[in-house]
Amino acid sequence: MTKSKASKTRTRIDALRAVIEKECTAPTCRESGTCRHEGEKEAARHMLSRLLEKLKDAAGDEREERAQMWADIYERGYDSHGNTYRMGAKYRSGQSMKERAAGIRADIKMARKAGKTPLVQEGPGLVSQALETYRFDPIGEAPEQIKFRVRIGAGYGSIHIGIDNIPQEWGWIAEEVTDYKGGKVTRWRRTQALKDLEAELKSVGEAYNADHGSNTMTDCFAKAFIVFVDSDDPETLAWRAEYERKRRGRRA
């Protein structure tokens, strides 16, 4: 069987070390007190040094190639086997779920604050662009009465971003439809403004997330966590209010 390149290299290293470490037993060298094989050992030391240096450089090149390969995979979001990879801009390895939830809260708070802050006039015809990134941000532009909540889901595998106090006329469109019994019922669908707000909140949460190789074809889910954006339509809110009223009545 033909030896591999790595196997041949290991054999050469072992042979050179054997020459370097071998104790000289030649009678002439012992009688003279000077080993005439020292030159051979010195040559072996130099050769071993050069060989190890080449191996070190090769290993370094391999690490760089692998780092570049993974950088390319994360940039396009998937590998050649259909596994998806993504790393959010604010994702940090080892970060706790509490830290991620706190970061999401801080980002939402900043967006709300910046959305209400007027642009600063710095001089004739000059306007500061420091807060312009939030000028058309759905979070900052959402109605003032809307409240946001961020909580960690059961099992620490998800983060839920809730939207409360949504103005009905701003967030929902009522549609009269016919149900399977032939009766008329109201169905609520989101306005484009609410859809934009939910998409922006989702992106805020995903900035702290990472996907390490999920593949839906094999039911493999390797995300750091799952981001949910929750909002209740008027019908759901009315049902919750009625349920809470009955619950309090039973406890009274």
Rank of each mutant, 00 (worst) to 15 (best):
E122F: 04
A222V: 00
D137M: 07
D219K: 13
E176V: 04
A15N: 10
P27F: 04
A210L: 03
T236K: 11
P124H: 09
K184Q: 14
T9N: 12
L55T: 07
E176K: 05
R63C: 00
P118I: 01
G33D: 11
R190I: 00
A207G: 11
R240P: 01
E99N: 10
E42S: 14
I226N: 14
A224E: 15
E244C: 01
I73K: 02
K41F: 09
K246N: 11
K202E: 15
E21D: 15
T25F: 07
R248V: 07
H81S: 13
R135K: 13
R245P: 03
I104M: 09
N165T: 02
W170D: 02
A111E: 02
S203D: 14
E53N: 15
K113Y: 08
A207P: 11
E23R: 08
G125R: 11
G205T: 10
F228N: 14
Y78T: 06
E244Q: 13
T9I: 13
T216Q: 10
I173C: 06
T34G: 00
I20L: 06
G153R: 04
A58M: 08
E244N: 11
K8V: 02
V227I: 15
A67D: 14
T34V: 13
K195G: 05
Q121Y: 03
M87K: 15
A142I: 01
I161P: 10
G213C: 03
H46D: 01
G77A: 07
M1Q: 12
A18K: 15
Q121L: 10
G213W: 07
G94A: 05
A142F: 02
A89I: 13
K41W: 05
R63N: 09
K116M: 08
P234R: 04
V150D: 04
E132F: 11
A26C: 14
T216N: 08
G182E: 00
N165E: 08
R250K: 14
R100G: 10
A114C: 12
G125P: 13
T186S: 09
F221C: 05
K41T: 08
A199L: 08
M1K: 11
S96Y: 07
L52Y: 03
C24D: 14
G88A: 08
G103T: 03
A111M: 08
I73R: 06
E23V: 10
V204L: 02
S93A: 14
R135F: 05
L131S: 05
L119Y: 06
G140Q: 05
R76E: 10
A224I: 04
F136C: 06
G155V: 07
K3C: 00
R10D: 09
S128A: 09
S4Y: 04
D72N: 10
Q129R: 15
Y156M: 11
F148C: 03
R240H: 08
I161D: 06
R100I: 12
T133P: 09
I13Y: 06
E21Y: 08
G155C: 07
M110E: 14
L201N: 01
S93T: 13
E242Y: 11
R17E: 10
S80P: 00
K113S: 12
R149M: 07
D179R: 00
E132R: 14
